[in-house]
Simulated scan of single mutants.
Amino acid sequence: MTRTTRAARIAAAAVLPAELALVACVAAGVRLPGAVLTAAEAVVSAVLLLEACALHRLYAAARAAGEGRGAALRTAVRAVVPVQVRRLLRHELRAGASLGRWVLRRKHGVRPGDLAAGYTAPQTAMMYGMVFVSVVETFALALLIPWPAVHRAVLVLDVYGIVLLLGLHASCVTRPHVVGADGSLRIRYGALFDLAVPPDAVASVRVDRRYPEGRLVTLSEDGVLDLAVGSQTTVTLELNRPLTFVRPLGARAAARTIRFHADDPRALVTTLRRPA
């Protein structure tokens, strides 16, 4: 990785959150000093110029290596934009699209003959509770904050948070686990986690309720992956070979046993055991 590419990656990771915060303030009507706006514009312009130079060099190198235009552009973007930033942006875009699917009652990636296995029951009440608290907080702050500019900024952030919560839940509802007609299994959590398990990789599957501690995705030293929803899993899947999965922020790891949650684990296990 060249110095230009490394600098572009650092700049993208550092400047993007600051730029989003600045845009939120401006959209909320906050009057920023002219010097702040000028400095911000100068920094953003410098970063964009740096990104453009790095992208052009990488794109030209990929084209010279024989890649097509689309492939060369993807190669350049992957090299310049950190994977964590790409994953977060992709998640937010998919969460927004999931809101539309949720309203239209459509599922993503479910074909005729497939079993769609939901997994949102343990978190639904919590999600709606968080949305309710956020709405109450928004109205309360509207009454308590006497400064209009601060109130508008907080309002923008609160509305964004509410939409993000609804989008996260919608992505989980519209992206269920899928047992394919061919015996394959797709284990998902919204737009954050997606693992395809081919039929020949399944050694055994059983209903097995557990209550693991920790984050959404945890991997033990012996290769046991827990994908918990509401701090619980209901299905244990044993594999006959390790499968590589991608964590929510892009890191890769391998698992030999996968424990995940399904609202109706018996239906999922029965369907998965059925010969294709």
Rank of each mutant, 00 (worst) to 15 (best):
R6C: 00
A14I: 07
P17L: 10
A21M: 11
A21T: 11
L22C: 06
V23L: 14
R31P: 04
A35F: 07
L37Q: 04
T38Q: 05
T38I: 10
A39E: 02
V44W: 09
V44T: 15
S45F: 11
S45D: 06
E51A: 10
C53D: 11
R63V: 08
G66I: 02
G66E: 07
R69D: 10
T75Q: 04
A76Y: 03
V77A: 11
V80W: 00
V85Y: 04
R86S: 03
R86N: 00
L89M: 10
S98C: 05
L99K: 13
G100D: 07
R105P: 01
R106F: 08
H108A: 13
D114R: 02
A116R: 06
G118W: 03
T124W: 06
M126W: 13
H151W: 04
R152Q: 04
V154E: 02
V156K: 00
Y160W: 14
G161N: 11
L164T: 12
T174R: 04
V178P: 00
V179F: 01
I187R: 02
D200M: 12
A201F: 10
V205C: 12
R209C: 10
L216H: 06
V217E: 08
L219S: 09
V229K: 00
G230E: 04
Q232V: 12
Q232W: 03
Q232E: 15
Q232C: 11
T234H: 05
N240K: 07
L249K: 10
R252G: 00
T257Y: 10
P265E: 07
A267Y: 10
L268V: 01
T271K: 15
L272K: 07
A276E: 08
